[in-house]
Structure formats: structure tokens, C-alpha cells
Write a protein that binds this DNA or RNA. Structure first.
Length: 437
RNA sequence: GUGCCUAUAGCUUAAUGGUAAAGCUCCGCUCUGUGGCAGCGGCAAUACGGGUUCAAUUCCCGUUAGGCACCCCA
């Protein structure tokens, strides 16, 4: 009764699937990933940034202390787990805290300042998946940690990120930038904001009445029409920055101007993570691909190191969401060139030839020649069909006759022309043909 | 966490209260020493559970999964 076996297979299929919001990156997707990674690597090399790979797991407190107790990323979205010893770890929801922790732990300040660091890897946030939003996603970006608190670094990070978008051939990128001040001026502005809103509390939405108490800066990005309207007359942070912050921000903008980098001042841009100060920025694309939201976000986080037991350390960084980048590339129909087809397809004809073909395969690979095959298929036809499907230009055919002559047929799949070549000359012949193309 | 929408083969789609159809893909054969074309054949689906009904893939309810919006965010 074969019918008994079938439902079983079905059950198995249904029992396991990738966790919600987490995705398999299948072979067809890999070219996009390879492109993003290589563009990031090139940028890192050009600007002298070095890669750092912190662990995926950290003590949950690291993120609580840095990202912020009151933030959604911590409160609602962190994956935590308890070890047998009782430590509470978290899957990292972002890189910044880990990078700072590593800097502190390994005294990277002694390795030269500032440290220019590059990261690429998965992060985890337990929110409800939707377009451009996943529970496991990939961030990649750059950080400059330590050294002098100089606006030129803010500009440098922005420049690099925009260069990356250019290298990816991305169109219509819009840089939004703002300053959210420092320990000195932010509390003052918050007060002013609260006073302003208290006078209009009746017209605020319910969320915003809470925000007014807990996190007044968030009042700035509420979408409720009533709240939006209220913003017209509210005090503008940029007018209220302290002297040092306003000088810093001015310098950032001057550096951007110097390179003719376009930006949009957006005084409603506040970031959801507590550690940011002064410069914050985001990049969106206009038109196709816009639906995924910000593809890049970053800012200065000078106080972060203090919150984990270090000294005040000037720091700035930015991260791309790789899945979002790729979504935009697809939406903008950015074509990724296929891998070069410098690969030979090895074909056997007959059982003993199969063994010799296997041996030849080893020798080809040892000589650095990439090989593809369908040696498990018996008919010559079927094998050549596979070769055709892969779109390779050269096939090697090995049969009884060739073994007897210690030769092999080189077939040009495009023209159909074949040549019989001595076995010991095969590798040179292949290389010769590739060299002349 | 709240709300809305969806669920047929690997993919794209069709149909019906009464045998579930096709295109693409995949595998094989025609063609045991030669691919692309063609012809033929094969694998393969109504997410799961319950209800209404003589009969449910179709109607209803629940579950699960996916999508989308809000919150928030890369």
C-alpha cells in the first residue's frame, strides 16, 4: 500500500518551515548578496575600514543599557534566552552596542584612533513581518569610533554610504539629516516641547499624550493629522541647539556642501534608539522601491561608551538593511551580471569512461579549471542537454575511443565545432581558448 | 500587540456543490557517440480541523501559514 507513505511525506513538509519572519537565501538570490557584500568590502578597503564580527549573542543588559530601556527595540522586540547558569542573553537587535563593547573590551583605543570599522551580519527583532521587515535581517555598515569629535567624520560616513549606493547603481536616493543635540541642549528643548504640547494636549492623539511624558521627541514623528498640524508652530530643535552642537552640525553640512552632496533637513527625524546624539540621518529612495522604508540609518553616539563603563568616546556609524537594499535593487531593475562562464562541462560516454572522466575532473580542478558535470546521467544526450542548460561554452567529451587514444574531445557548444586533443594538452588548450576571448 | 486580505502542482494561472485543467520548470523516452527544436510520456496540488449537504476544492466556522496596514523600524 504505497498510499500509506504519502501523507507521511506531507506531514513532514508541513512540520518544518523557516521561522516566521526569517528567510532562506536561495542560490538564485545569492548574486544580489554577493554584489552588496563586495561593494561594501570595496568601500571599506578604499576608506581604510576594517571588518569586525562580534558574536550574535550578547548579554541582554548590554542592549538595555545602550539602546534604551523605554524603546520598542528593547521592550518588545528583543529575543532573549536564559542559560543554565542564569545569564540572560539576547540575539543582537543591532550592531552598535556590540561594536562599542568590543572596542572597550579589547582596548581598541590603544590600537590607534579613531578606529574605522566595518560590519556585516544578521540581527534579530521580534516584530510582525511585513514588506521590508523581517525578524532576522542583515545589517551592514561603517563606524568610526574614538579619536576627535570632528564633524568631518559625520560627513565621511555619509559620503561612504552614498558611494555604496552609487556603486550599486541605485537611483533617487534622498538623504535626510537632522541634529538632536547633546546632554546640554536636548533636555532644554524637551522641556520647551513639553510646554508647547501641554497647552494643546486636548488635540493630541492617545499615543502622543503618553509620548508627551515618556519620550517627547517622539511627538515629532507621529502621523496622526491633528498631531502633524500641531507641529507647524512648535519650537524647532535646530534653533535651540547649544553652541557646540549647532557649530558641529553646521560643519557637517558644510562638508556635505563642499562635496555637493544633496540633503534634506528634516527636523522631525529623531531615531528610535536612545544612544544617538547630534547628527542623525536616514536614506530613502523615491519612486520604485520606496515602499521598503529607510534603507540606511545612522548617527552619532558619543555617550554610548559611557553607559557601558567606558570614557566619553566620539563615535558615529550607519547601517544598511541588506534585504531592503536588495528589494530596492530589484524594484529599480538593477541587473546583476551573471558569473563569467569560464567553466567546462565534462561528459562521459560509457562506464569505463565514467571512471576516467572522474579522474580527469580531479586533474582539471587541481589545475584551477572550474568543472561542471552530469556524470550520473548515462546518455550522452542527456549530459549535453545539461551542459546546454548551464550555458557553458566548452564541453569535454570522453569515451572509449578517446581513452584508447589518451585524448579528449573539446566541443565548442556555441559553434558545435569539435577538436580532438591529447589528454596531456587539454588543460593548456582550455586555458588558451579562455585567454583569447 | 491591533486590524484587514489571501490560501489549487516547484512557479504562474484555470474550473466546478458531483472524475481538478493547462502553461512553464523538473525527470525520462523517441535518439545506447553529440545539446538547443519537435513529438510522446512521467512526477506533482485544492493548507489543516470541524460544520451544512446525498455529495464540499467550491458555502460557513475555527486553526495554521503567508501578505498588507498600524505601532515601530534597517
Amino acid at each position: 500500500m504505497p498510499s500509506k507513505e504519502k501523507p507521511k511525506a506531507k506531514e513532514v513538509e508541513r512540520m518544518f518551515r523557516a521561522p516566521k519572519g526569517m528567510h532562506d537565501v536561495l542560490p538564485v538570490e545569492q548574486p544580489y548578496w554577493e554584489r552588496v557584500e563586495s561593494v561594501m568590502k570595496d568601500a571599506a578597503r578604499l576608506y581604510n575600514f576594517h571588518r569586525i564580527d562580534p558574536p550574535i549573542l550578547e548579554l541582554a543588559d548590554l542592549f538595555r543599557r545602550t539602546v534604551g530601556e523605554g524603546t520598542d527595540v528593547i521592550e518588545k522586540e528583543m529575543y532573549t534566552l536564559k542559560t543554565k547558569g542564569g545569564d540572560v542573553f539576547a540575539l543582537r537587535p543591532e550592531f552598535t552596542a556590540s561594536i562599542s563593547r568590543a572596542y572597550l573590551e579589547h582596548n581598541l583605543s590603544r590600537a590607534g584612533q579613531p578606529q574605522k570599522l566595518h560590519h556585516f551580519g544578521p540581527v534579530f527583532r521580534h516584530d510582525r513581518p511585513q514588506l521590508g521587515r523581517f525578524r532576522q535581517f542583515t545589517q551592514t555598515g561603517f563606524d568610526i569610533v574614538g579619536g576627535v569629535n570632528d564633524a568631518i567624520y559625520d560627513a565621511q560616513i555619509i559620503l561612504m554610504c552614498l558611494n555604496v549606493l552609487e556603486s550599486l547603481k541605485m537611483k533617487n536616493a534622498v538623504l535626510k539629516i537632522n541634529s538632536i543635540g547633546c546632554k546640554v541642549c536636548r533636555p532644554i528643548y524637551k522641556k520647551q516641547l513639553q510646554t508647547y504640547y501641554k497647552n494643546h494636549e486636548k488635540s493630541l492623539c492617545t499615543d502622543c499624550t503618553i509620548r508627551l511624558k515618556t519620550n517627547p521627541l517622539r511627538l515629532l514623528d507621529c502621523k496622526n493629522p491633528e498631531c502633524v498640524k500641531l507641529r507647524e508652530k512648535m519650537p524647532n530643535f535646530l534653533d535651540k541647539l547649544c553652541l557646540t552642537c549647532s557649530k558641529h552640525f553646521k560643519e557637517v553640512l558644510e562638508y556635505l556642501d563642499e562635496l555637493q552632496i544633496a540633503y534634506v533637513l528634516d527636523n522631525q527625524l529623531v531615531r528610535g534608539l536612545d544612544y544617538y546624539n547630534r547628527t542623525v540621518f536616514e536614506v530613502f529612495v523615491e519612486g520604485a522601491g520606496n515602499e521598503v522604508g529607510a534603507i540606511l540609518a545612522g548617527g552619532r553616539y558619543d555617550y554610548l561608551m559611557e553607559s557601558i563603563g567606558g570614557h566619553l568616546t566620539p563615535s558615529i556609524g550607519a547601517s544598511f538593511g541588506v534585504e531592503r537594499l536588495i528589494a530596492v535593487m530589484k524594484a529599480q531593475e538593477i541587473i546583476i551580471q551573471p558569473r563569467t562562464m569560464k567553466r567546462v562541462f565534462l561528459v562521459h560516454a560509457g562506464d569505463s569512461a565514467k571512471k576516467k572522466a572522474f579522474k580527469l575532473m580531479r586533474d582539471l580542478m587541481a589545475a584551477g579549471i572550474p568543472v561542471s558535470e552530469a556524470l550520473a546521467k548515462e546518455s550522452l544526450k542527456a549530459q549535453l542537454k545539461s551542459a546546454d542548460k548551464e550555458g557553458l561554452s566548452l564541453a569535454l567529451i570522453l569515451g572509449q575511443k578517446e581513452i584508447y587514444e589518451a585524448s579528449v574531445i573539446i566541443r565548442d557548444m556555441r559553434t558545435g565545432l569539435q577538436e580532438n586533443v591529447k589528454l596531456e594538452r587539454v588543460i593548456d588548450e582550455i586555458k588558451k581558448r579562455w585567454a583569447t576571448k
